[in-house]
């Protein structure tokens, strides 16, 4: 059975033109111990998806439809008290900017102890010991001394390690990581990705890795969902996506990343810009930018086309599909 099953998730925000959906009909599942990459550009709805799973969508936004089943329970029907019991214990989240998600007036140690004390069942002494062990586990040298430091005394890389310790100290089954390395330098990013990979194997947790960076996906994900304008447009194992992307958007995205293997005069581009929410074209949202689009693409949102049992694309005529 899947650890997380999302069906037809729709999250909307009010605007002058009425409600616009930031996430529209997202369906995917995540098995235990699996790393799923959720890739998209700004405004694609990838972060809103993450916040929807945690039921942390900021008002006036709201989840309008769909179901989110986690360990067999429907999260959208739980009351807030039960939801709080899950957050930080069974499912945790880490963010792009660790400085703003850590409380500046508390020491690192106090913050890492907090989730254990909140969820009860441990004494302060046990919590302290486990927090220390966790800080050491995420690679913080001299954890006992760092325990009493404040967040501003740490470098960006160390702060992200503290965030990870805080998220994982209760050993959750699911970690939602929202651009956890985007604010970090490339050498520090490599350290954090390696750490996440190790911890994932060791704790057997699943990771939903939200990122705009295809390199991060290539580095860590088992499977990938590509999002565009609020919809999941392609879902594939990571090797398949990089070798044979089926959706023209995924293909364009992969090609427009400069790579160091060959020298090209010009970078292939995706023409145009992402449509604004509320100004979505009636058919496929990517049609105005798609090199292969024709009349069929502008009628209705494209159906999900299953290429193999683990590869699907929401496209009228996916690349590489014959017939």
């Amino acid at each position: 059975m899947a650890l997380l099953e999302v069906e037809g998730l729709r999250t909307v925000f009010p605007s002058q033109e009425g409600e616009v959906s930031a996430v529209e009909g997202a369906s995917f599942s995540l098995s235990e111990g699996e790393v799923l990459g959720l890739v998209g550009e700004s405004g694609s709805g990838k972060s809103v998806t993450a916040f929807s799973l945690m039921r942390l969508v900021q008002a006036p936004g709201r989840i309008a439809a769909g179901s989110v089943r986690f360990e067999g329970r429907d999260l959208l029907s739980l009351d807030e008290r039960e939801m709080r019991k899950l957050r930080g214990r069974r499912m945790s989240m880490i963010f792009q900017e660790p400085l703003s998600s850590l409380n500046p007036v508390w020491t690192v140690g106090q913050q890492v102890m907090e989730p254990m004390l909140l969820h009860g069942g441990v004494t302060r002494r046990e919590a302290r010991e486990r927090a220390l062990a966790m800080l050491a586990r995420v690679g913080i040298a001299d954890a006992a001394r760092r325990f009493n430091d404040y967040p501003h005394q740490l470098s960006g890389g160390l702060r992200q390690r503290v965030m990870i310790a805080l998220a994982l100290v209760c050993e959750p089954k699911l970690l939602i990581a929202d651009e956890p390395t985007s604010a970090l330098d490339v050498t520090i990013q490599a350290q954090i990705l390696e750490l996440l990979r190790d911890l994932q194997r060791e704790l057997g947790m699943a990771i939903l890795m939200i990122t705009h960076d295809l390199g991060v996906v290539a580095e860590i994900a088992d499977r990938v969902n590509v999002m565009y304008a609020g919809r999941i447009v392609e879902s594939a194992p990571v090797e398949t996506l990089f070798r044979a992307p089926a959706h023209p958007y995924s293909a364009g995205l992969l090609q427009s990343v400069p790579d160091m293997g060959e020298e090209r005069e010009r970078l292939p581009t995706i023409r145009g810009i992402v449509p604004r929410p509320g100004e979505m074209p009636p058919g496929c949202a990517f049609a105005p930018r798609c090199p292969y689009a024709d009349a069929a693409c502008t009628v209705a949102p494209p159906p999900v086309h299953t290429l193999t049992d683990d590869h699907a694309a929401a496209c009228v005529r996916p690349l590489g599909a014959h017939g």
Partner: peptide
């Protein structure tokens, strides 16, 4: 180290890199 730290261009190259330790 900088070049080694760049995330893999494809999944096939994953994990073949040595992470540089420490902070600047």
């Amino acid at each position: 180290s900088l070049l080694a730290a760049i995330p893999a261009a494809t999944p096939a190259l994953r994990g073949r890199r040595v992470a540089l330790g420490g902070d600047p």
